[in-house]
Amino acid sequence: MIENEEKVPKKELVGKVQQLISQGYRFVTISCVELDEKYFDLLYHFDKDLTLITLRVVVERGETVPSITVLLFGAFLIENETQDHFGIVFEDSVLDFGGKLYLGDDVRRTPFCKYGIKDVSKTKQESE
């Protein structure tokens, strides 16, 4: 459990972010954690006067997440990174690299996921 943490359902995320911005919070980053075979945690970190608050959103594998880049342009890099590493797709992103921010065109896999090993070995052989 992290200090100043709040659980937010996925539907209310954009509204909550909007509310924080109007209160003068500065966007810090998003952290993504793979919980188990089915779920991911997305942690949205915001900062105001050196206090950090965190919104926790639980996402199911294969689901899309609403993008917050409409409100915060600064989030485009981290959203694309998360898409590269974990394969979570963000809807209506302002600047979408389509999962190719870091990875080469010949690599098609999500390197940060523990589960889905079958897929990885297959694409690994292809890329080599």
Binding site: I21, R26, F27, V28, L72, G74, A75
Partner: peptide, 9 residues
């Protein structure tokens, strides 16, 4: 100042 804040610099 405003942009630096909202872009999360």
């Amino acid at each position: 100042k405003e942009l630096a804040h909202s872009l999360g610099a």
